[in-house]
Amino acid sequence: MTEADAYDILSQTFLTVLIASAPILAVALAVGLFIAFFQALTQIQEMTLTFVPKIAAIFAVLLIGTPLMYSTVRELAEKVFDLIASGSV
């Protein structure tokens, strides 16, 4: 295994982590900003108002986005396991 192969596996791993976590992080950011703007406009400073909608939105995205996350992680795992089985690693 050369340095280029290790770099390729690492870059694919980082890309897989970004693709798998991006939907959850994007929804959490969007809901958090919406709640913050809503609280700033109405001057409601309730602490549970920030957490409950964000958790519900993240849970909904997890239910919807799990197949995408699973497929991206599975593809990377298959590539790495194929490299291990062929003796390249």
Rank of each mutant, 00 (worst) to 15 (best):
S88H: 04
L41V: 02
A30S: 15
L49P: 05
V73K: 01
V27K: 02
A4M: 10
I9L: 14
M47P: 00
L76T: 07
S71E: 03
V27G: 09
S86P: 02
E3I: 08
F51T: 09
V89F: 00
I35Y: 03
I35G: 12
E78N: 05
S21T: 12
Y7T: 05
V80M: 05
L76F: 08
T16G: 06
A30P: 12
F14V: 06
I35H: 03
A22V: 11
T16V: 07
V17G: 08
M69S: 09
S71L: 03
F38A: 15
F59A: 15
K79T: 04
A28G: 13
F51W: 10
L63T: 09
L33I: 10
A26D: 12
T50H: 09
V80K: 03
K79C: 03
A57F: 05
A30N: 07
P23D: 03
M1V: 04
L83K: 14
L15D: 14
V89S: 00
V89A: 06
I35S: 04
L49E: 09
T16A: 13
T72N: 11
L62K: 02
A40C: 05
L63F: 11
A36E: 08
A85L: 06
Y7E: 00
I55N: 03
E3N: 07
A20G: 08
G65C: 13
Y70V: 09
Q43I: 07
Y70N: 09
A4W: 07
A30I: 13
V31H: 10
L83T: 02
F34Y: 07
V89T: 00
A4N: 09
S11R: 13
K79M: 08
L63K: 10
T72D: 11
V31Q: 07
A26T: 13
L62Q: 10
A40V: 06
A6S: 15
V17Q: 11
D5N: 04
L41F: 14
F34Q: 03
Q39P: 11
L76Q: 05
E46Q: 15
E46K: 08
F38Y: 10
V80I: 10
V31D: 13
A26Y: 12
F81I: 02
A36D: 11
M47H: 01
G32H: 09
A77I: 02
Q45D: 14
S71A: 05
L63W: 09
A57N: 06
E75F: 14
M1Y: 02
I64G: 10
A57G: 09
L76D: 12
G65A: 14
E78V: 04
T42Y: 08
S21K: 11
Q12E: 07
T72P: 00
A57T: 01
L10H: 02
S71P: 01
R74C: 06
